[in-house]
Write a protein that binds this DNA or RNA. Structure first.
Length: 461
RNA sequence: GCGGCCUUAGCUCAGUUGGCAGAGCGUCGGCUUGUGGUGCCGAAUGUCACGGGUUCGAGCCCCGUAGGUCGCCCCA
């Protein structure tokens, strides 16, 4: 079609796709809050150096896959390809390394990578993630993983994913291991795929997760990091596993998990699934003890993960766990202006009490009923001249096709009793709760009094 | 950056050796303006992705481009 389309690798989130997306973010935010994380929002673009530092030149990442450009002032700007670097930069920029560590951060938002799109991989995509900044203890690693696991449980997709963990050791362990690995693969050089022969020069660790069948046979007998761990690194890894058991998080050890960048150390983990084609990692992370220093801060050992919202959404869809849209109440005036005015009063009353309600803007009763059906209304409140005269309304259950006339004061109760309008049930439960307690009891509980006063400063214009 | 497959109505798709572009769903309207979801009648909607070529004639054959999709590379 020769009309405007979304730019390559971008997509619109509409309807049930948007509901899944939002459900992922809201669930993650709720669970992260339970674990004591606070939410940060850092800029969507940063000075290119925020992302290029620490990346090194071992891969195509900087040259090929970042959205970088010069702004009008001649500065090199990059759309964030991930958010860990931005969070670390913000920690340093705001002077938060000086005290109050560890700091526990949750984030959610769009990221950008200049890649060829494929299943579960886009140029603009969205991630959620958490970071514990300034915590050298293995308990932090385990808690971070437990939080991610609980989010997947809450979403209902945990049965389709498996946690795989590994350790990259400390610097001394890595150097020893890398040397052993290069020696081993060099001895098998001729049997390796062409891709892996190139990796041997550029990034030998990546041979470990090659998809080539020949390579996999050679990899199966390759040395593992575990033969080269220092005493301290081995103890750290053992502690992480012990804490994971304490949190009740099931895991599988996978010695082939690697990380390309130098600032990673110790714990590396991925939640993987076989339900997303070639993009099997749903949530991935690990410990990075050098990144805050790259941003100009003091040594600040940290651990975190990021997860792709689109991939989690695909799992929700596959598991048929798309959240339903709320079913509204359709308010239907029958007659002229007096009926419409009465219907608007009814709308206000319903919405004030938290009931999702709509009115059609035009059409006769039949059209409005058709529209009520189309928008998925569970019930209709019909108000005509007969009803107005008696302060009544007709409450119709649109699923069952039954209806009754009730007093205006009883409309919410009648709607709740249809059982098909969730928000009306909630409103009725709130009524019952309110009437269960005397007012001074509620004051004593000090529950919700200060919501309104704490709204913060007014919006700037 | 590389490769396989795909592109016809808003959606899902049919379209015979090359001979007037179709169906279902959806949308809109009507079937006495106080009752929908299920009935009946009717209507609108196309640069057959784009550009070139072959042919009397191309949705169909050939070449190129773009986009989609699934992989490879890469994966912070």
């Amino acid at each position: 079609m020769a009309q405007l389309q979304p730019a390559r690798g971008t997509h619109d989130l509409i309807g049930e796709e948007h509901r899944r997306h939002l459900h992922v973010i809201e669930t993650a935010r709720r669970i992260a809050t339970l674990y004591g994380f606070e939410e940060w929002s850092t800029p969507i673009f940063e000075d290119t150096r925020v992302f290029s530092r620490g990346l090194g030149d071992t891969s195509d990442v900087v040259s090929k896959e970042m959205y970088s450009f010069e702004d009008r002032g001649g500065d090199s700007i990059t759309l964030r390809p991930e958010n860990t670097a931005g969070v670390c930069r913000a920690l340093v920029s705001n002077g938060l390394t000086q005290g109050g560590l560890p700091r526990k951060v949750f984030y959610a938002g769009p990221m950008f990578r200049y890649e060829r799109p494929q299943k579960g991989r886009y140029r603009q995509f969205h991630q959620i993630g958490i970071e514990v900044l300034g915590a050298p203890e293995p308990l932090a690693d385990a808690e971070v993983i437990a939080c991610g696991w609980q989010i997947q449980q809450e979403l209902g997709i945990d049965e389709g994913t498996v946690l795989e963990i590994n350790t990259l050791g400390d610097a001394a362990s890595r150097d020893a291991y890398r040397a052993a690995l290069v020696g081993y693969f060099a001895a098998h050089r001729d049997a390796l795929s062409a891709d892996s022969q190139a990796r041997l020069e550029k990034n030998p660790l990546r041979i470990l997760d090659s998809k080539d069948a020949k390579d996999r046979a050679i990899v199966a007998d390759a040395p593992t990091i575990h033969d080269h761990l220092t005493k301290e690194a081995a103890a750290f890894y053992a502690a992480v596993k012990r804490y994971l058991e304490a949190f009740g998080v099931p895991f599988r050890e996978n010695p082939r998990i690697v990380r390309g960048l130098d600032y990673y150390s110790h714990t590396a983990f991925e939640f993987v699934t076989d339900r997303l084609g070639a993009q099997g990692t749903v949530m991935g992370g690990g410990r990075y003890n050098g990144l805050v220093e790259e941003m100009g801060g003091p040594p600040t050992p940290s651990v975190g993960w990021a997860a792709g919202v689109e991939r989690l959404s695909l799992l929700l869809e596959a598991a048929e766990l798309t959240p339903p849209a709320p079913r509204p109440v359709a308010v239907i005036p029958v007659g002229g202006e007096a009926a419409e005015a009465a219907a608007i009063l009814m709308l206000r009353e319903l919405r004030d009490r938290g009931v999702v309600a709509e009115i059609a803007y035009r059409g006769n009763t039949k059209r409005r009923m058709e529209r009520a059906n189309r928008i998925g209304a569970g019930a209709a409140v019909i108000i005509g001249e007969d009803e107005i005269a008696e302060d009544m309304a007709v409450v119709r259950n649109l699923d069952a096709g039954t209806q009754q006339r009730v007093a205006l004061a009883d409309v919410v109760r009648a709607l709740a009793e249809t059982g098909v309008v969730e928000s009306a049930v909630q409103a009725l439960m709130q009524d019952l709760l309110d009437s269960e307690f005397e007012e001074d009891e509620i004051d004593d509980l000090d529950l919700d009094d200060d919501d309104e006063d704490d709204a913060g400063e007014p919006e700037r214009r």
